[in-house]
């Protein structure tokens, strides 16, 4: 969590260099496939439409779906970190 906050809060950094001619760019990366996971899993209702096991009194249906939030955050974070462009700036 700390490292997540660290990169979320990172402000400042040098401004981007004025547009130097670049080679053709793209967003393609095998890491992007990781984004499929949090899109598909929360829609598979037959997997989590159960009362048990309970967690702290929550039926499985509820705590599992709240747990998918962590899956979503983890996947997007990994994809972001692995596909960050080396622009000389770490963003803002």
């Amino acid at each position: 969590m700390d490292s997540l906050m660290a990169y979320l809060t990172h402000q400042g950094g040098p401004p981007l260099a004025e547009s130097t001619p670049r080679p053709r760019r793209g967003d393609r990366s095998p890491w992007n496939w990781l984004l499929v996971l949090p899109v598909v899993v929360p829609l598979l209702t037959f997997v989590f439409n159960e009362d048990k096991p309970r967690l702290a009194g929550f039926p499985f249906f509820y705590w599992a779906q709240l747990a998918f939030i962590i899956l979503g955050v983890a996947s997007t974070t990994v994809v972001y970190l692995m596909t960050r462009r080396d622009t000389g700036s770490k963003g803002d």
Binding site: D27, N32, L35, P38, P42, F61, L66, F68, T76
Partner: peptide, 19 residues
């Protein structure tokens, strides 16, 4: 339970629109 769709909705949306 049907009203809880708001949670998967707002989990699915971000990885879906990321790219």
């Amino acid at each position: 339970a049907a009203g809880f769709y708001a949670v998967p909705y707002t989990v699915v949306v971000y990885p879906l629109v990321f790219l």
